[in-house]
């Protein structure tokens, strides 16, 4: 349980960090922010990076900036900083619902939001949030900065569109208008463990009808996914238990599960149903 050797770099600027990444990309250079997934992977020698580029000394990366319509989360913002008090309204409520399920407190004090995106675990709550709300990733290399839609960023199991010489500088999330109802459900075998199944549901109601429904599922699929069939069913309909039940069934029926398994399909349906029913 000891990591193999690597060279350690602690750049003070983003320019230096991306220059180091470019210089050592061939030697499996990796960015170190919270390290709560990478360090155990290194301990088990599943990962053997030749260079670690620790970005914690770069000023400003631990900043969250919030405007009326969006939140920008810097690369070193910890899970613990993204609870319900990080933003007002339904967006903050949703953050709080998700953050509570991320591992345990000592992990949340170190692990980062953007690190979860770069790791792209199928059971990542933050990846699910990025897909649910159409978030974008700000990626930087020596060639410059580009914005990547979450949908295009997450390619599959622990696979992203990030190039070896690129690093995430920040994540951008649109916030939710006042009055939006938000719900989340996660099933894990043990508190704090990886989600086996999870779902986010958000919607608003205008003149008794559902507007802007968003349903996203994770855990049971190789990457977080929206459920367009369920969203289409909900859009314009009157919220009631039978409708939510049918939407959950649609989401589960069309989910590209990691394996064809009636239990996983049933779990998916239950997660979506509980997220929808619990949305407040």
């Amino acid at each position: 349980m000891k990591s193999s050797s690597f060279e350690y770099h602690a750049p003070k600027t983003l320019d230096d960090a991306v220059a180091l990444l470019a210089r050592h990309a061939e030697e499996e250079a990796r960015v170190l922010a919270g390290g709560q997934t990478m360090v155990p992977a290194m301990a088990m020698r599943l990962a053997r990076p030749g260079h670690l580029i620790d970005i914690n000394a770069i000023p400003g990366l631990d900043q969250i900036s919030l405007t009326d319509h969006a939140m920008r989360i810097g690369a070193c913002v910890r899970h613990a900083a993204l609870g319900a008090t990080a933003a007002p309204g339904p967006f903050g409520r949703l953050l709080g619902l998700l953050q509570h399920h991320i591992a345990h407190l000592p992990i949340r004090t170190r692990g980062t939001f953007c690190g979860s995106l770069a790791n792209a675990d199928a059971a990542s709550e933050w990846c699910l949030l990025m897909v649910a709300l159409d978030g974008r990733i700000e990626a930087r290399s020596t060639a410059g900065t580009r914005m990547i839609d979450a949908e295009d960023f997450l390619l599959g199991y622990m696979t992203t569109a990030l190039a070896p010489e690129e690093m995430i500088v920040a994540a951008h999330l649109p916030t939710l208008p006042p009055g939006t109802r938000v719900g989340f459900h996660e099933f894990a075998r043990r508190a704090g463990d990886f989600a086996q199944s999870m779902a986010i549901a958000t919607y608003a109601v205008a003149q008794g009808r559902i507007t802007a429904p968003r349903i996203a599922i994770g855990g049971v699929v190789s990457r977080a996914r929206r459920c367009p069939e369920a969203e289409a069913l909900l859009h314009g309909a009157t919220p009631d238990p039978a409708l939510f039940q049918e939407a959950a069934r649609q989401a589960a029926t069309h989910a590209p599960l990691v394996e064809e398994d009636p239990y996983l399909r049933s779990l998916t349906e239950t997660s979506v149903l509980r997220a929808l029913t619990g949305a407040a």
Binding site: L32, V39, P40, A43, N56, P106, I107, R110
Partner: peptide, 13 residues
């Protein structure tokens, strides 16, 4: 002041 896992951090950090 914050609880952390000391196995998930390199001493150099």
């Amino acid at each position: 002041g914050e609880p952390i896992r000391a196995c998930l951090m390199f001493a150099i950090q």
